[in-house]
Design a protein around this nucleic acid. Sequence first.
DNA 1: AAGGTAATACTACCATGGTAGTTAATGTGT
DNA 2: ACACATTAACTACCATGGTAGTATTACCTT
Lengths: 128, 128
Amino acid sequence: MKSSSHRLGDLQLRILQSLWVRPDSSVAEVHAELKPERDLAYTTVATMLRKMEARGLVLHREEGRSFLYRAKVAAAEVSRSVGQHLIERLSAGSLTEAVSHLLTSREVSREELDQLEKLIKEAKRRAQ
Amino acid sequence: MKSSSHRLGDLQLRILQSLWVRPDSSVAEVHAELKPERDLAYTTVATMLRKMEARGLVLHREEGRSFLYRAKVAAAEVSRSVGQHLIERLSAGSLTEAVSHLLTSREVSREELDQLEKLIKEAKRRAQ
DNA sequence: AAGGTAATACTACCATGGTAGTTAATGTGT
DNA sequence: ACACATTAACTACCATGGTAGTATTACCTT
């Protein structure tokens, strides 16, 4: 599966997330989507998309005067590799230790804990 | 608490982790510690430590001919901020979603799931 | 036809992380 | 005393992510 170790910066990842939700977005659309969080110039987004295409992260097709971009890498794959990298950084590879860090280092609400418990139960069910 | 958003690269974080476990390490000791995972030149580690000291991440004192370094930032604080950043990247701030990603995107053993369950229970107990 | 507008292309720049060589100082052993 | 080893200082370099200005192209409207 060639793995390829996606080493993504924050902005690139954010753009990918946007494209996963809304494929075939024009530069203008991605720019608009990111506007509230990050006030970037239009050309910044355009440049980023071009760089990302050169890296094989996205691709585009022409539609009239504008380019429509879509992610070339799967959300699942990238999330996995981002998560893996996180776990590696946070706790030298131990998932439970990583989660433990997350739990102890921030305020976690009752609801979140309940939800987490449900997640684990589901994972257990799926496991057998 | 000024937060300060520690933006650490992999190597810098790894060096900090090493110093948390063994404070007052010489460059040689840090270098030796990292040797198995990353075969870096001695000078690379030394340079990194100097750069990190300039950023306020570590500090040193002189002991004879060599410098003994120790982390200036607390493990808890850095872990928190690294974890926070991770959650942000992975799932726009939702902890449960982040954990969900981690669970679904990799093989999780029965033992790990049990341990996770225990973690949640403990967190709940602590919460009330 | 002309002028405005929207789009991409190209180029440039900066910061940072990472990597290491070279140099200089200082101590150590024979 | 002299060679050798250890150590830190300085310098340099490269890749990448991020940011945006300027130039060019093409379309649309009046």
